[in-house]
Simulated assay, not measured.
Amino acid sequence: MDTRPDTRRHDIDALRIIAFGLLILYHTGMVYVADWGYHIKSPYTAEWLQLPMLFMNRWRMDLIFLLSGVATAFLLRNNTAWRFVRQRSWRLLLPLTFGMLVVVPVQPYVQGVSNGLVAPGFGQFLLDYYSGHAWPAGAFDGWEHGFTWNHLWYIAYLWCYSLLLPLLRPLLDRLQALVDRLRSWSLLALPALPLLFYCWALKRDYPETHALLDDWYNHAMYFSIFVYGYWLGRSATLWAELLRLRKPAVAAALLLFGAYYAMLTWVPENPPEWMLLLAWLLRSLYVWCMLAAILGWAYALLNKPFAWLRWGKESVYPWYVLHQSLIILIAYWLLPYHLGPLLEPLLVIGGTVLGCWLLNDGLLRRVACLRACFGLAPLRRSLPAGRCAGQEAATA
């Protein structure tokens, strides 16, 4: 019996917009959180930011890959594998390439100048950057390769997972019946066990790099979450259970995070194996319970055709591509003015939101070639250039 949901899931669209919107807050927070490395740091760093940043850090990208898996299930429903791969490749690889060449370079430039290892002058930097210049060690993230994709690593990973999933689809579809049987606390606990295994087996030997080829811990985590999303996208029964469990899920997530955070403060520098395993267990359970809570509450509250969804669905991908470069550039411009720990971050956030809106609505959505470079569908001939074509972006 096919239990896949057939109606339009407005909550998935809304949650995807919210999840990517949180990246603006999170990456702005990275400029100001104490003791966490980033491409540029303000002198107004604060230790208190570590708690809310840690709370979000453990599941923010998992949520995005989970939603990408749900969307992939929807896209594969009426597509052949070849058509799906062709469409995803076009709508992911072109924005990735364009972003790396045009949008991202300001980030290594600012980082290199801030580190005192790159000479000021963006024009000369671009000439060196595009010509394969050998950079000083530690000049910027990715200096050893001569270039970087920085925050656009997600697009590269999503493309790889999108190629893998059609190959594994027969196996995953056979496992669907087993997954659909998860109920109550088994749904809140069993999906966390593979995440615990990856922490124990891979985390120490393969620290996070976002460099694709050597990032096996991240691949195990994110691809598994991506597959979870695929199963969710094919199952109405799982969504009904997540809806029912939304209150215990959020309570469990908060309790687990409290226990996990307490352990982090107690763990010695070289903890025994049992202590590491306990911390990883709490972390894995927290991540999955938090994801389950978010999905359940979104299904309850956001599955409505809000007026802002049409604009948001098309705008979220360009905003994602643009936002980190704008954060870093605006912070770089503002730091010399010493505006204080309140005004400066407010201006960084406000300037980033304003910049994304002006570039997206004033330019990117109106120019056909730029639409393609930012993963947007072509404009329909019947619509004026400034209006949404009603088609979804590549990371839907």
Results as ranks from 00 to 15, higher is better:
R8P: 06
R204F: 11
F84E: 06
L255M: 12
G29P: 10
W216N: 04
L178D: 14
W143L: 04
L295P: 09
W36A: 08
M53W: 04
M61G: 06
T209C: 05
V287Y: 05
L277Y: 08
V103Q: 01
D6W: 13
W153M: 03
A134V: 15
R181T: 14
E392S: 14
Y299V: 13
P105H: 00
V110I: 07
S235M: 03
L51T: 14
Y222W: 14
L335P: 09
A396D: 13
G132A: 04
G390S: 05
Q324C: 05
R244Y: 09
T80K: 10
W135R: 01
Y198G: 08
W153R: 01
L243C: 12
C369H: 13
S224A: 10
L309M: 05
H145G: 07
L363E: 03
P378C: 06
A189F: 10
W274H: 11
P305D: 01
W143A: 12
Y157H: 11
H39M: 14
R8W: 05
F20P: 10
L212M: 11
F74C: 11
N270E: 14
L117D: 04
T97A: 15
A46E: 15
M221E: 12
Y228P: 10
L164W: 10
R246F: 08
L302P: 11
L342I: 13
L193N: 06
L256Q: 04
G258L: 07
A240N: 14
R174E: 11
Y222C: 09
A73D: 01
V106L: 09
L379S: 15
H338M: 11
V33Y: 07
G355S: 02
L76Q: 09
K247L: 14
T7A: 14
L67P: 00
G37Q: 15
T7F: 12
A46Y: 12
F306C: 08
S224F: 15
T72G: 04
W231E: 03
L256D: 02
V118R: 03
G312Q: 03
L175K: 01
G233Y: 08
L326T: 06
G312H: 02
A259C: 10
R88M: 04
H219V: 07
V179R: 08
Y230C: 03
L117S: 04
G37P: 10
I12D: 02
L193T: 09
W288D: 08
H338Y: 12
M100N: 09
T352Q: 03
P108G: 01
A293W: 06
G350S: 07
R371K: 09
V227S: 00
R9M: 14
V367H: 10
P207R: 00
P336T: 00
M53S: 07
I225S: 03
M275I: 09
C369G: 15
L117Y: 03
A240G: 15
A252F: 13
L75R: 12
I24C: 08
F125L: 02
L75M: 14
P95R: 00
L25N: 05
A81S: 15
Y217H: 11
L117I: 05
A385N: 11
G375V: 00
A71R: 00
R183M: 06
T80R: 12
F98E: 08
T3Q: 13
T3W: 09
P170C: 03
V250W: 15
F125G: 01
